[in-house]
Simulated assay, not measured.
Amino acid sequence: MTTQFYGASSLDGFIATPDHDLSWLLQFGDIEGSSYPAFIRDVGALAMGSHTYEWMLKHAIDAGQPWPYQQPAWVFTSRTLRSVAGVDVRFVHGDMRPVHQAMVQAAAGRNVWVVGGGELVGQFHDAGLLDELIVQVAPVTLGAGAPLLPRRITKPGALRLQSVATLGGIFAELRYAVQRP
């Protein structure tokens, strides 16, 4: 069981535009040609920030699409957000350690996916709960927006490169092991 961030970043290090939009990523087409299908099979629980959750509501649920995840999802937020009928979404705030323990228990030996955003990934890192970063770097620049990981991680060996792969001749997928304190 690992706690992982899996997501895409622009070449200049942003995961979303300043207004939290991800449509820059959708221009690259179907996820079926990516590493996502194999990745999601091993996921047993999800952690999601409120902006990511609201983006999912707008671009999936409000667009008539079904909720894309079968796994339970914990949405970290300080605001009241609407829920989705028939979907296991739990709204939480505060100390993430007990929430992470509940996620690990619900994942039942499978992985915990920190879906986004970058600040949430940073909080998991700061709490010593993040094991792996899997980042697909897209050949676009956004110039500004939500950073991939808004933290200074400068200690030698804190992030250990595990692999680099080319996906569809478009993305470079980087896998880093996160060394816990």
Rank of each mutant, 00 (worst) to 15 (best):
M1K: 01
M1P: 05
T3F: 04
Q4R: 15
Y6R: 07
G7W: 09
A8L: 12
L11Y: 08
L11I: 12
D12W: 06
I15F: 02
T17W: 11
T17V: 03
P18V: 08
D19P: 05
S23Q: 11
W24N: 02
L26K: 08
F28C: 09
G29E: 13
E32N: 13
E32L: 07
S34F: 04
S34V: 06
S34T: 15
I40L: 11
D42C: 02
V43C: 00
A45L: 03
A45E: 02
A45K: 03
A47F: 15
M48Q: 10
G49P: 03
H51F: 10
Y53A: 05
E54A: 05
E54L: 13
K58C: 00
K58W: 00
H59A: 03
A60L: 14
A63S: 13
G64R: 07
Q65H: 14
P66L: 08
P66N: 11
P66R: 14
W67A: 09
P68H: 04
Y69L: 09
Y69A: 05
Q71L: 00
Q71C: 02
P72E: 05
W74Y: 13
V75W: 01
T77P: 07
R79F: 04
T80P: 00
L81S: 06
L81K: 01
R82G: 14
S83E: 13
A85F: 00
V87N: 04
D88Y: 02
D88H: 07
D88N: 14
V89Q: 03
V89M: 00
R90V: 12
R90S: 07
R90T: 14
D95F: 10
M96Y: 01
R97F: 01
R97L: 12
P98R: 08
P98M: 06
H100C: 02
A102N: 03
A106Y: 06
A106M: 03
A106I: 06
A106V: 07
A107W: 01
N111W: 10
V112S: 01
V112E: 06
W113S: 02
V115C: 06
G116A: 05
G116Y: 05
G117I: 04
G118I: 10
G118R: 11
E119V: 10
L120G: 04
L120K: 02
L120P: 06
V121K: 03
V121C: 11
G122E: 04
G122A: 02
G122P: 10
F124S: 01
L129K: 03
L130S: 07
L130H: 06
E132M: 12
E132D: 04
I134K: 13
I134A: 04
V135K: 08
Q136S: 15
Q136G: 13
Q136D: 15
V137F: 07
V137K: 07
V137Q: 14
A138N: 08
A138Q: 09
T141K: 07
T141D: 00
G145Q: 07
G145C: 08
G145M: 09
A146K: 10
P147I: 07
L149Q: 09
R151A: 09
R151F: 00
R152M: 09
R152T: 14
K155P: 00
G157L: 12
A158H: 00
L159F: 08
R160H: 01
Q162K: 14
Q162G: 13
V164L: 15
A165C: 01
T166E: 13
L167H: 11
L167F: 03
L167D: 12
G168Y: 11
G169I: 12
I170S: 10
A172S: 14
L174W: 04
R175D: 00
R175N: 10
A177D: 14
V178Q: 11
Q179E: 15
P181L: 13
P181Q: 12
